[in-house]
C-alpha cells in the first residue's frame, strides 16, 4: 500500500471514530432533552416536590445544588490555590513532595461513593454535623481538591520564568511576585478549572447521599437568617440536590408523575452543566483578552 492510501485509510478511520463519539453524545443529549425539556416550566423549577400527588417541582433541590456549589468552592478554592502555589513555586524535589503528589493522584481516582462514605464517617458522625449541606460541601471539596490543585499548579507553571525574574529584578519578594504577577496572569486558567469542577459538583450524587442527605426540610425562602433552622441558608440542614433527587425518585418515587419529574430534572441538570462549561470558556477568553495575553 502506498503512503498516500495508508494516510487516507487512517484519516477515514479517525473520522469514523469521531463520528461514533459524536453520535453517541448527540443521542444521549437528544434523548434527555426530548424527554425532559417539555417538563420544564417556571412552576417546575420553583415549587417543592409533591410526595403523593402530581405536579410537584424541584425548586428546593435546584437551590440546594447551587448553595452546595458555592459552599464547596468557598472551601476548596482557597485550599487549592494555596496548595497549587506551594507545589508550583516552593516545593523542592523531595521524597515527601513525591508522596504528596502520589496521594493527590490516588485521591483524584477515588470513586465518589468512597469519598461519600468517608464524609459520612468523618463529617456526619465524628464531627457531629449530621446530614447537612456543610458535610456535603466538605465531602465534595475533598473530592474536587485533587483536580483543582492540579489545575492551579499547572496554570502557575505555565507562566514563563521570565515573568518571575522580572518581578524579582524589580525588587519584589518571592511572595509579592507570586501574588501580584503570577496569580493574576494564571487567573484565566484557574477560572476555567474552577468552573469545570463546578460542573462535577453540580452533577455529583453518590458522594452526597451519605453526607448532605436525601431530604430537604420545609424551608422558607423569605427567611435569610443562616442560623434559623427553616432558612435556606442554614448550612446545618439536610439538603437533597438535583442529582440526588433524580437518583431518589427513580428508586423510590411514589408520586404518579415520577418519571416525568426525573426527566425534567435530568434536563435541568444537563442544562446547568452545559451552562458551566460555556461560561468557563467565555470567562476564560474574556480574561485572556483583558490581560492582553494572546
Amino acid at each position: 500500500m502506498s503512503a498516500k492510501s495508508t494516510d487516507r485509510l487512517a484519516t477515514a478511520g479517525l473520522y469514523v471514530i469521531v463520528g461514533i463519539i459524536i453520535t453517541v453524545l448527540a443521542g444521549l443529549l437528544g434523548f434527555v432533552f426530548v424527554k425532559g425539556i417539555p417538563q420544564l416550566s417556571w412552576q417546575f423549577i420553583t415549587t417543592p416536590p409533591q410526595i403523593f400527588k402530581e405536579g410537584g417541582g424541584v425548586g428546593p433541590q435546584l437551590f440546594n445544588s447551587f448553595y452546595l456549589l458555592v459552599l464547596t468552592l468557598m472551601i476548596a478554592v482557597p485550599i487549592a490555590i494555596g496548595a497549587g502555589i506551594y507545589l508550583a513555586e516552593y516545593a523542592r524535589d523531595h521524597w515527601i513532595i513525591r508522596c504528596i503528589r502520589v496521594l493527590i493522584e490516588v485521591l483524584s481516582s477515588l470513586p465518589s461513593i468512597v469519598v461519600g462514605l468517608f464524609g459520612f464517617l468523618f463529617f456526619v458522625l465524628y464531627m457531629g454535623w449530621g446530614f447537612s449541606i456543610l458535610s456535603g460541601a466538605f465531602a465534595l471539596s475533598l473530592f474536587n481538591l485533587p483536580l483543582l490543585v492540579r489545575v492551579v499548579e499547572q496554570s502557575i507553571r505555565n507562566i514563563p520564568k521570565s515573568q518571575r525574574e522580572a518581578g524579582w529584578a524589580l525588587g519584589f519578594s518571592k511572595w509579592e511576585t507570586i501574588t501580584t504577577i503570577i496569580l493574576p496572569a494564571a487567573l484565566p486558567g484557574i477560572v476555567t478549572g474552577v468552573i469545570l469542577a463546578s460542573g462535577r459538583v453540580f452533577g455529583e450524587a453518590a458522594a452526597l447521599i451519605y453526607t448532605a442527605g436525601m431530604s430537604t426540610p420545609i424551608i422558607d425562602f423569605t427567611n435569610w437568617n443562616p442560623l434559623s433552622p427553616t432558612s435556606p441558608l442554614n448550612p446545618f440542614r439536610p439538603a437533597e440536590t438535583l442529582a440526588v433527587h433524580i437518583w431518589k425518585i427513580n428508586g423510590e418515587g411514589i408520586m404518579p408523575d415520577a418519571a416525568a419529574i426525573s426527566d425534567g430534572a435530568a434536563a435541568l441538570l444537563i442544562i446547568s452543566i452545559l451552562f458551566f462549561n460555556f461560561t468557563s470558556r467565555f470567562i476564560g477568553n474574556l480574561m485572556f483578552k483583558k490581560m492582553g495575553a494572546n
Binding site: 521570565s162 529584578a169 493574576p184 496572569a185 492582553g292 495575553a293
Partner: peptide
C-alpha cells in the same frame, strides 16, 4: 533582560 518580559497588564 534580553527578552522584554512585560507583564500582561
Amino acid at each position: 533582560f534580553q527578552h522584554a518580559s512585560v507583564f500582561p497588564f
